[in-house]
Design a binder for these strands. Structure first.
Lengths: 343, 343
DNA sequence: TGTTAGCACTCGCCTTTGTGGAGTGCTAAT
DNA sequence: ATTAGCACTCCACAAAGGCGAGTGCTAACA
């Protein structure tokens, strides 16, 4: 069977209506709601077809129809009309706090949640493709050194290193020079064993302690690929009855707390480069099983070269896709602007 | 009326039973549950008294009794028998991750939540009474400086400072010496305007730029009294029907997300020094209004001088106080040990 | 005087039953 | 191809009734 023009309009009307009310929508409603001037009987026939084709389902006989995942999918792919969102206010807010990445991200998450009435998450930019800008080793006290590594985009990592043997000022200075000349401009992921051993060699006489130090710096740089994910508005899910029952709410809340699980989503999003950077996962399409009753919309943002992070909105399947996509576009653009201003 | 020995035993039995089942408990149950060998009728009389005295309430006529806030209070104050918890496993886990305070705290929160089946929170130690150990200013690039401040207990703060005018190496060195000699050993809260202006004076010729830099360091040290609170197990509240309804769950979850609100709890706990460091807030006693249907047990931990933080367990009023208090004691002691080993 | 047995009573919970309404599918007429 | 009409389905909701747990009271007993 073919999707006639009319069927599309009806499907669209069903979805729109369902998005608003959350209730199954019947033929009579559509018969008036649209400008098609068709009787409910005709609509019923069409709806019957649409059901057969899999775009809508009946929760039970003699109830109205609701969109299936497939119906939503069609809607998102072809029928959406993007709304322009008024997220401009955000610009200033964001700029205020510009200095601390962490604050910024929290802020963004909060803003999105507040504006959309869905739950939101944002992952800190991945930095492993990021270039090292500055390395410094300082003595804290007898047995402890402080290593500071700053990467492109002013991402700072601190590490305290315990050493058995005290290093004198001269050695420390040498080490600093050595580290900077070798590591500067390198992407974090480019640091490898060969390089480390080459550094050790050049460090020369103190090889034992110095070697240890270099090892632990290298390790700490590479190791801490810490998943930083900020979430907000988890409790928004209680606004949607279809998600608010204990079972589901508990699962979703848990996923939000164990941010670990959200990394999958981040990975998935970052790896897919197909389109505009915005992806929509409806129901079972989601990479996170616990969210199979939700829809998830993700976007990739970039702060300059290689620093990409993920923003996500999680809500009911009947979320306002238009609005959400609009909001995400606005935000990613503004993050872009932000970066440009900053550099 | 006086609380006879027998009344106490009955009250205790009621509470114990209610803690387990969450159901109102009737006279017949008590008549068997205890070793008092009294008929249900006698128990009924006593219960009637206890109700009059305010220790128990009936949710509705012809239901069993449940403890009132006042009943719980009496229980916690006088009738508790602490259980010894088997939280020893934790010791090793904690030591593994010793290096990063943040990880440690998250770990502890998670552990507590998992072990108690309640929600947990932990605040990072306050550091404003903490002494500065080390200050360093480095040039990142033309317009940017990196300030690193390390305080007692190896708490590290980074700050990027934008400067209009570039500082040469010599000035930077001087500044570093100046900063260290002045600030070293000082508690963060001791830094005041007089001191800052005195530094500025000594900085001499470059007063304009240097002054700015000093200002922003001082500011960043003082300013970022950032509330770091880690939470875990929020979804545990779904395990207790009396908290799991939408309204309440939503409120509680929200409080957990907006960690802001939890600061009150932290403040309250830290300020009160009365007793063993463990406090129990039952129902309306809580400092956080949104948790008036819960009980909150908090403990103060110390990592050496002046570094005090708060741990909290949030659960239903019928929480297992014995177990929770035991667990908190164990944890605080272990954090104590941890600090000793570390230094 | 304290304790107990017995009994009537209360009230929430659960199941059953019934009703109304929204919506469908089908058929026949236009 | 569209529509009006009608019988049918099924959910949601309310009312009704029975069950059971628990109480308060009274009277009897040690």
């Amino acid at each position: 069977m073919q999707l006639s023009e009319r069927k599309i309009k009806i499907l669209q009307a069903i979805i729109r209506n369902y998005l608003e009310t959350g209730e199954p929508v019947g033929s009579r409603t559509i018969s008036r709601y649209t400008d098609l001037n068709l009787s409910s009987a005709t609509i019923r026939n069409e709806m019957s077809d649409l059901e057969e084709m899999g775009y809508i389902v009946q929760p039970h006989t003699s109830a109205g129809r609701i969109p299936s995942d497939m119906g939503y999918r069609l809607y998102v792919d072809t029928m959406m009309e993007e709304k322009d969102k008024e997220l401009e206010e955000l610009k200033e807010m964001m700029l205020e706090k510009e200095d601390k990445m962490e604050h910024l991200l929290r802020q963004v998450a909060k803003l999105l949640a507040a504006n959309t009435n869905y739950a939101s998450m944002i992952s800190a930019p991945t930095i492993h493709t990021n270039k090292i800008k500055f390395v410094q080793l300082s003595r804290l006290d007898a047995g402890q050194l402080l290593a500071v590594v700053v990467a492109e985009g002013n991402i700072i990592k601190n590490n305290i290193i315990s050493v058995a043997e005290e290093l004198n000022d001269e050695t420390l200075l040498k080490l600093n020079i050595l580290l900077n000349t070798h590591l500067n401009g390198l992407a974090l992921e480019e640091i490898n064993l060969g390089m480390i051993s080459s550094m050790k060699q050049q460090a020369g006489i103190h090889s034992k302690v110095v070697g240890d130090v270099i090892d632990s710096i290298a390790l700490s740089i590479k190791a801490e690929e810490d998943l930083e994910i900020y979430t907000s508005g988890a409790n928004n899910i209680f606004k949607y009855p279809e998600l608010a029952d204990q079972q589901k709410a508990s699962e979703i809340i848990n996923t939000f707390e164990e941010k670990q699980l959200l990394t999958e989503l981040v990975q998935e999003t970052l790896s897919d480069e197909s389109n505009t950077g915005i992806q929509v996962y409806i129901g079972n399409e989601t990479p996170i099983q616990t969210m199979k009753d939700c829809s998830v919309v993700t976007a990739t943002y970039e702060l300059g070269e290689g620093m990409r992070g993920t923003i996500g909105i999680i809500g009911p399947k009947r979320m306002d896709y238009d609005k959400v996509v609009g909001a995400l576009k606005t935000i990613t653009h503004q993050l872009d602007d932000l970066y440009k201003k900053r550099t």
